[in-house]
Amino acid sequence: MANNGYDVVVDVDDEGDLGHTDLADLEFHPSNYNQDQASGKIPTSASNTGGFFGGSSGSRGNDPNSKRFLWSMDFYAQFFDVDTNEVLKRCWAALFPRANFLDVLDDNPDLYGPFWITTTVVLILFLSSTIAQYFARAKDEPYVYDFGLLSGAAGLMYGYTGVIPVALWGVLKWYGSESANLLEFLALYGYANLIWVPVAIASASPITVLNYLFVGIGFGVSASFLFRNMRPVVSATDANSRILLLAMIIALHAGLALAIKILFFAHGSPVAKKPEAQTGDAGRSRSF
Results as ranks from 00 to 15, higher is better:
residue 1 M to K: 11
residue 5 G to F: 03
residue 6 Y to N: 14
residue 6 Y to F: 12
residue 7 D to V: 08
residue 9 V to E: 13
residue 11 D to S: 12
residue 14 D to G: 15
residue 27 E to P: 11
residue 27 E to C: 03
residue 30 P to I: 00
residue 31 S to R: 05
residue 35 Q to A: 10
residue 37 Q to W: 00
residue 37 Q to E: 03
residue 40 G to D: 11
residue 42 I to K: 09
residue 43 P to H: 01
residue 44 T to F: 09
residue 45 S to C: 09
residue 47 S to P: 07
residue 48 N to E: 13
residue 53 F to R: 12
residue 55 G to R: 06
residue 58 G to Y: 03
residue 64 P to S: 01
residue 65 N to I: 01
residue 69 F to W: 09
residue 75 F to N: 15
residue 78 Q to V: 14
residue 82 V to E: 06
residue 85 N to G: 13
residue 92 W to N: 09
residue 99 A to E: 07
residue 107 D to I: 06
residue 109 P to F: 00
residue 109 P to T: 05
residue 110 D to M: 02
residue 119 T to S: 15
residue 120 T to N: 06
residue 126 F to Q: 10
residue 131 I to W: 00
residue 144 V to I: 05
residue 145 Y to K: 04
residue 155 G to K: 02
residue 159 G to Y: 02
residue 161 T to A: 13
residue 162 G to P: 10
residue 166 V to C: 06
residue 168 L to P: 14
residue 185 F to C: 08
residue 187 A to D: 14
residue 190 G to R: 06
residue 192 A to G: 06
residue 201 I to G: 08
residue 204 A to W: 04
residue 206 P to I: 02
residue 209 V to A: 13
residue 222 S to H: 08
residue 225 F to V: 05
residue 227 F to Q: 09
residue 228 R to S: 12
residue 231 R to W: 00
residue 232 P to Y: 00
residue 238 D to Q: 01
residue 239 A to P: 14
residue 239 A to L: 06
residue 251 A to F: 01
residue 252 L to K: 04
residue 254 A to Y: 10
residue 254 A to R: 08
residue 265 F to L: 09
residue 268 G to I: 02
residue 273 K to E: 15
residue 276 E to P: 11
residue 280 G to V: 02
residue 282 A to D: 15
residue 288 F to M: 14
